[in-house]
Design a protein around this nucleic acid. Structure first.
Lengths: 241, 241
DNA sequence: TCGAATTTGTGCGTATGTATC
DNA sequence: GGATACATACGCACAAATTCG
């Protein structure tokens, strides 16, 4: 076993004091200079130790303000299963949406929807909120020619505003039968971190979701960003053999 | 728009040369000293630019050898759905397993299995292989008192060795009806990176999977590590309302 | 309101460790 | 075993954000 470098040892020192409730969640730690003085290490060793703990989600740093013990906020459980309309708003969840209108399909979106590159889609951006705080981002695309001339053309308008893809499609005679989700790990970019109230570079799960109708056509596809610090994702489904 | 720092600008220079097929996937780049000379920057700027591209999966570094253009390997599609036994071996997939024998349940595992802390479990480690290369790791726990005295006590032995949880449990009269998976983003530690043949710190998805029987008891839980660079995970299930 | 002090965040160069050939 | 190349750690300087008088 090789000896740990100074910054890692100091990180463990800090972690012990945090675990011992010496500083409680949300509280500010002494400044780097103070900690360096107290332990007889350089301020840079303190900085690296804090960076390490930040990357583990134990601390969070705020420029100009200080380094804080991360709030052990209870993470939302986000269930994704066949039995329910996913991500529908309820008493606890709400969302804000903004339809950008028609945009030509990028090569990737065209492939996901099975339409021609450049064909028009209705793009809508969603922010899911709990207690008025965003906990999930989504951008969705629907083929324009699927909903043109119907009341559900714009997801956020009409009698079924906010009702979810399955119900909206049912309204125009399209039966959604399957959903496919591709979750991938990633890091939050500056914009996502800002919108979600998390640290830049924090771990997120990006989900590509596509709904399919009974004739096998893709009727909607979406990019979903779920911050690991705020949400746990659960897939639950029956086992059939 | 603020000006980019030198290492970021040089990263874009490198990226353009890579995109232009100047160096092909798998090929070695010139050494840092050479690149630094060629572009009139310090070797440290080259190093940081390469680190940046490594974190994006464009390059990979090997100590003592060189920096290489990442192979754009085709990623396995890993379907997780109700219709099939998951992760069963077939013509393309195989796995190696190693049962550690009985271990007392940690608090976390006990909670996941709904058993008492310290109660014994059968722990088994799996490495899933494609072309003899590991693409997925799994560690599973089964309550000892569930399978004790039966032929399926050890997942890797007996007539149903390697048959999967659902079939093995069916053999002893336990009907598995549901599965729950909790995927979370993370980074590979040194050991995982070594086993999976990926860079240390590379993005992975960690899945907590638990199978439930018809009486609601958890019959198996597992930690699964899926490297993003090698596998895409797909959840597909029917929509029922 | 504004500016100075404080605190964290970013970038860079050097020294050293370690794997490869 | 030596030479070479990347990996890790550290210290310093400065920028950016916040705080507070």
């Amino acid at each position: 076993m090789r000896e740990q470098p100074p910054y890692r040892r100091f990180a463990e020192t800090l972690r012990k004091r945090i675990d011992g409730q010496e500083w409680k969640p949300g509280e500010r730690l002494p400044s780097r200079a103070q900690l360096a003085d107290e332990y007889g290490v350089t301020a840079d060793v303190v900085r690296r130790a804090q960076e390490w703990l930040i990357s583990e989600g134990v601390l969070t740093g705020r420029a100009g303000s200080g380094t804080y013990v991360a709030e052990r906020r209870e993470r939302r459980r986000l269930v994704r299963s066949p039995e329910q309309e996913q991500c529908a708003p309820d008493a606890q969840w709400t969302f804000e949406s903004r339809t950008d209108g028609m945009v030509p399909a990028s090569p990737e979106i065209a492939a996901r929807l099975g339409i021609e590159e450049g064909a028009y889609c209705v793009r809508t951006a969603y922010e899911y909120l709990v207690d008025d705080k965003p906990v999930q981002l989504m951008t969705s695309w629907e083929p324009y020619d699927l909903t043109v001339g119907t009341l559900v053309l714009l997801p956020e308008l009409g009698p079924l505003a906010g009702a979810g893809v399955v119900r909206r499609m049912a309204e125009i005679g399209v039966t959604v039968t399957d959903v496919e989700e591709w979750p991938e790990p990633g890091h939050a970019d500056a914009e996502e971190a800002n919108l979600l109230g998390i640290q830049k570079g924090a771990l997120v799960t990006r989900i590509q979701r596509t709904y399919y109708s009974d004739d096998g056509r893709a009727v909607e596809t979406a990019d979903i960003v779920v911050p690991a610090a705020k949400c746990r994702i659960a897939y639950r489904f029956p086992v059939t053999r």
